[in-house]
Write a protein that binds this DNA or RNA. Structure first.
Length: 801
DNA sequence: AGGAAGCCGTCACTG
DNA sequence: ACGGCTTCCT
């Protein structure tokens, strides 16, 4: 059976799993994607499961695409061997193509593989009109999906227009964030109100209530609704729930450690048909198969909860010890990284307390040591990274730019690095900046399409009413909106009524009537013209194209190219999903992430956040900004569980590396345009075994402070070639031992005075944590309190006053 | 009605 | 230092 070929024992056990619950604890680089893909192929090819009975949840759209791709290859290989008795690759090209197409038509096309958001947006397209809302709100199947910006605009309108509050005091962004949190907990406005007692909380609940009404009036959903609405629908409608329960008999979830309660509910409702997970026993024709690694849970900020993973067995299993039930498989062999890299990652993560015990075993050679570089500031750091990459590229012809990645904690850090890359003419790509679908011209054209499908979508209508210019100004729009509000009808109802338009706006009525003609003309084409052609029509007939042409600037040229790219995207979407609709295309545009459409083929260095790097691997990985307050983030310094999440993030970063790992930190950094701030090496650096490190290892503690600063200035940026590694400037272990680690017997108490090498004298105002891992807050004169790790900070006790 | 100029906040991670 | 937004001017 080819689906089991080349797998290790644990992987084989996972792939062979047929019915019932199974948790696959899969460490970094242990072949979990392989296990998932092979299992789906095995279900279909071996157990004869109908592809329509499978639901597979991936973490990104890109992962979904790749999984389908791999599945096609696997299944084609299987058919090829069975029918023709030879490997797929040896078939004539034409037969290869025919076979691939057959597999697509009969199998992969039928599979529901995608992110939670994409899959459940699709489910809602079937049944959203049957949703019973407690307030009697309703939506139709033509609903729009609002991105974060659209949602914030809606909230801003509520704050300013309806409540007449100051949007600076009540920032739409923060309110949206609070509402999003509530939705992720599964709370409606009433529940949010009862959870938060204070005045502001009450107001936010009220805005939440108005925001929901506003979304309904626009026939629109935000990202959170895409998960929350299906939960309500499945809870309240037995018939619909029964349908999806019977349809999806085999459910697979990747990155299970990063699911939140709402997502868990969706899975539970489908798998158990509404009964409790513990109470569900009939596994005769179904399975739930989840894959994850608690050590890689890095999304608590959007309510991900890895205890869902930790509880999986007691939840879906029967609480027997595992060797009796076989509801867990551990993949512990790492095929990705050298053993040095792996050992460092293992050492780091043992500092966390909340874990499933798991040791990642190396299968590869020792490899190079991990290289540490200390730099003066963020500019020197950028130069040092770029220098390092240039050396690697020059020294090793096997390393192209595409083998290298630079990872950082925050997006803002990319700027200085980009400047250096540009200066040295190194090709690079930034993942996670401005999404393609967030560009102004793209959003404009998509807004036209949304209005065509969903005339209630006032946010989109307002966006395009005067784009391109039609002489419809602010006052006209205000008048029309007021009329719509007073009459309780949509803006479109007013705009499309010629009489109303004429009476309300003498001067701009011409432009408005022209606009309505355009829309009704395009609407006629909606159902018999393919999406890409309709997009083309919108671009041309709206006058958007001619406006860009007459502008004739570099910028307008760029916009035209982007619009062409949009047409291409629609064509591609059609090719990949036949029988697709414009609604489908718009949904995929709304749910696309920046990482999804980056081409990985071209030879460029990749820049991204540590979060975005999840699931990827690179031969050469550089992590920059390894400093207290930056990574780990300052928000985590006084919160043990956040600090553990930061550590997991670091673990994720380290385990992306296959061959070489380079860590950088600066001794001074300019933070958000303000003044330069001295920076202290990251706690995580001190948690890596020194035997695995080379380069300038930050020595910590108070005693040899002056000497250290002197030394670091002399050896600031390492300009050695990689091959000169044997002569690295590793300080003697004796010295490091003396200075690093907990100072035995040293107590830090509130009220103690300390001397800091850069900040001068200060007083401890708070202590956090206990035992060896403590942080202290120190008030120095002339600045706010500083949170420091006494093991790392260059401080000396002065005794208390 | 529409453009230009200055102003202000912003920097956590994301589908 | 950046871009989006307000405000002012025509």
């Amino acid at each position: 059976m080819i689906f089991l070929d080349g797998l290790n024992e644990a992987q084989r056990k996972a792939v062979n799993h047929h019915r019932g619950p199974l948790l696959v604890v899969a460490g970094a680089g242990s072949g979990k994607t392989r296990a998932l893909t092979h299992r789906i192929a095995h279900l279909i090819g071996h157990h004869g499961i109908d592809p329509t009975n499978i639901l597979a949840v991936t973490f990104t759209n890109k992962a979904a695409r790749e999984m389908k791709e791999r599945l096609e290859v696997l299944l084609a290989q299987n058919v090829s061997l069975a029918q023709f008795g030879q490997p797929f690759k040896t078939l004539p090209i034409i037969e290869q193509r025919q076979l691939r197409n057959k597999i697509y038509q009969e199998i992969t096309k039928e599979l529901w593989i995608g992110t939670f958001h994409a899959l459940f947006a699709r489910l809602l397209r079937f049944d959203i009109d049957k949703l019973k809302d407690p307030e009697g709100l309703s939506w139709t199947r033509q609903f729009s999906i609002y991105d974060e910006k659209d949602s914030q605009n809606l909230i801003k309108e509520i704050v300013v227009q309806e409540l007449q509050l100051d949007p600076k005091r009540y920032e739409p962004k923060k309110i949206r964030w609070a509402i999003s949190n509530a939705k992720n907990q599964g709370w409606m406005p009433e529940q949010l109100e009862s959870e938060t007692g204070d005045k502001r909380g009450k107001l936010i609940s009220e805005i939440y209530r108005l925001y929901r009404r506003s979304l309904a009036a626009n026939n629109a959903l935000d990202f959170d609704d895409l998960l929350l609405f299906p939960v309500h629908l499945l809870l309240q409608n037995e018939q619909i729930r029964g349908y999806w329960h019977n349809r999806f008999k085999h459910v697979l979830v990747d990155e299970y450690q990063d699911t939140n309660r709402t997502q868990y509910e969706l899975i539970r409702l489908i798998v158990t048909d509404g009964s409790s997970a513990k109470g569900f026993k009939d596994w005769s024709d179904r399975s739930i198969f989840v894959v994850g690694d608690a050590d890689q849970s890095i999304y608590s900020f959007r309510a991900a909860d890895f205890t869902i993973l930790m509880d999986f067995q007691s939840d879906f299993g029967d609480k027997e010890p595992d060797n009796l039930t076989s509801t867990m498989v551990k993949l512990e062999e790492n095929y990705r990284s050298t053993s040095n890299i792996l050992e460092a990652a293992n050492a780091l993560i043992t500092n966390n307390s909340e874990r499933i015990d798991k040791i990642l075993k190396a299968t590869r050679e020792e490899g190079e040591l991990i290289h540490l570089t200390r730099c003066d500031d963020e500019i020197a750091e950028a130069e040092a990274v770029v220098h390092r990459l240039r050396m690697l590229q020059a020294a090793n012809h096997n390393s192209g730019w595409k083998d290298m990645t630079i990872l950082y904690r925050t997006n803002a850090q990319s700027r200085s690095i980009e400047e250096s890359l540009v200066r040295w003419g190194i090709p690079y790509v930034v993942v996670g900046g401005l999404r393609f679908y967030d560009r102004r011209e793209i959003k404009d054209i998509l807004a036209y399409l949304k209005v065509l499908i969903n005339p209630s979508d006032t946010v989109s209508l307002l966006r395009i009413l005067n784009v391109p210019k039609r002489g419809i100004g602010k006052t006209t729009i205000q008048r029309l909106s007021d009329a719509a509000n007073q009459l309780g009808i949509t803006l479109w109802d007013v705009v499309s009524d010629e009489e109303a338009v004429k009476s309300l706006s003498g001067r701009s009525s011409k432009g408005l009537i022209q606009f309505c003609e355009l829309i009704s003309h395009l609407k006629k084409k909606l159902h018999y013209v393919p999406p890409h052609e309709l997009i083309q029509n919108v671009i041309e007939q709206s006058g958007y194209a001619s406006e860009l042409i007459s502008e004739a600037t570099d910028e307008s040229e760029e916009r035209r190219r982007n619009l062409q790219e949009l047409i291409n995207a629609a064509i591609q979407h059609q090719e990949e999903n036949d029988e697709t609709t414009l609604e489908d295309f718009l949904a995929s545009a709304a749910l696309a992430s920046d990482a999804d459409d980056k081409d990985t083929a071209s030879d460029r260095v990749t820049l991204m956040t540590l979060h975005s790097s999840k699931g990827l691997e690179f031969p050469i990985v550089c992590i920059v900004g390894m400093e207290q307050g930056l990574f780990p983030s300052y928000r985590s310094l006084d919160n043990p569980s956040s600090l553990e999440e930061e550590r997991r993030l670091c673990y994720v970063g380290i385990t992306r590396a296959k061959e070489r790992l380079f860590l950088f930190h600066a001794s001074e950094r300019r933070l958000w345009g303000g003044m330069r701030e001295p920076a202290i090496p990251s706690l995580f650096l001190s948690e890596l075994p020194e035997t695995l490190l080379k380069g300038e290892i930050p020595r910590t503690g108070g005693t040899s402070l002056r000497k250290e600063n002197h030394l670091s200035r002399l050896t600031r940026v390492d300009r050695e070639e990689p091959r000169a590694s044997k002569s690295s400037s590793l300080p003697s272990n004796a010295v490091r031992k003396l200075n690093a680690g907990p100072s035995p017997g040293r107590q830090w108490n509130v009220g103690d005075r300390v001397m800091h090498s850069s900040f001068g004298e200060g007083e401890i105002t708070h202590t956090f944590g206990s035992g060896q891992k403590i942080s202290i807050a120190v008030k120095f004169s002339g600045m706010g309190p500083k949170i420091l790790d006494p093991r790392l900070a260059p401080i000396q006790p002065l005794g208390n006053t």
